[in-house]
Design a protein around this nucleic acid. Structure first.
Lengths: 176, 176
DNA sequence: GGCCATTTGGTTGTGCGCAATTGAATTGTG
DNA sequence: CACAATTCAATTGCGCACAACCAAATGGCC
């Protein structure tokens, strides 16, 4: 196998529980919890990968991967940033960013240079070419939104909810 | 850097547009689209990783990673499955599953054996130990749900929406 | 039986995500 | 100034995700 399509028609949710509100096998039953868990954790994971897949297709023209695109979005917005700030914005650490930024530099989209004020810090700034790429990137969002089949407001709402979720999860992960 | 916490307090959404419904700077403005794009694609990505982080913590006791847990969930539900079916359920291909299943086998949680009926197919079935692990896994969902800070219904609703999203995105990725 | 397309897993290569370590630069303190 | 603690980036190691390619088994067809 190892092919892109999911021929069988891809269930995306293994046996989605019919959500029969009338006769659930006891709401507190552990089996039920486990199935709900399967539902939600799997679903979010799948949605993320599906999104990734669409971006992969759309971004191929720009020669960017999805995370690289995220980095460029931040750089287009802020101009130039130290790796540290970039990591805070994107919620990524140096282990992920260092090689990624090297690839962007190899592609000629970005330059990395030690800050003069603080030799520990590395400033990342888009090159001429990197800045120019923004024009072509303007076509991306529409295609993505179209692919979702959602209305703008729905997307915004979903985004807000996910943001809220992320905040709660981060707090829980730190606390535990 | 390269540490787990995000000391600076983690913005998670770079400059979240105030979502001011009264005076948006022209709804069709390209900049706006790009920022919305940044919002949604980043947010989903971040939520997925945050989820992953919480599962990482919770699953450490069981010695499972998040994707391995997903595999075990399916196996607990269905008993034994060929790799192909597993891939359909989980939306993963052999390139991901083969090494993952080997690790689960090395951990003694799973056995893989060629089907007698069809020598191409490999049946994956939980071992005694793998089946036993289910009891301990029953504690997981509650902790996850608690970490989200969401009500069950909210989670269900979010799940449904994400499922819908995934379906649309898959269709778009195939079509494009 | 012989041939060929299809199905099924596996392997390789590239890139992301994160924990842990290292090393240099900076800051704080006596 | 000397010395310890902190900050920042890079590196290493492991696991996941996916494309591309491969070999074996199967099934239809003549």
């Amino acid at each position: 196998m190892a092919r892109k399509g999911y021929p069988g028609g891809m269930t995306a949710t293994p046996t989605p529980p019919p959500a029969n509100p009338a006769a659930p096998p006891l709401p507190g039953a552990a089996d039920d919890w486990l199935r709900l868990d399967q539902q939600i954790c799997f679903t979010l994971n799948a949605a993320s990968r599906a999104f990734n897949g669409v971006y992969r297709v759309v971004l191929k023209d720009l020669g960017l991967t999805y995370p690289q695109y995220l980095v460029m979005l931040v750089l287009w917005e802020h101009g130039a940033l130290p790796v540290k700030k970039l990591g805070e914005q994107l919620r990524l650490d140096s282990g992920t960013l260092s090689p990624l930024l090297k690839r962007l530099e190899a592609a000629g989209l970005v330059r990395r240079e030690r800050s003069a004020r603080d030799e520990r810090s590395v400033e990342v700034r888009p090159t001429e070419e990197g800045t120019a790429l923004r024009r072509r990137a303007l076509a991306v969002p529409r295609r993505i939104v179209a692919a979702t089949g959602f209305e703008i407001d729905e997307i915004r709402d979903l985004g807000a909810r996910l943001h809220q979720l992320t905040t709660a999860l981060d707090k829980a992960a730190d606390g535990a």
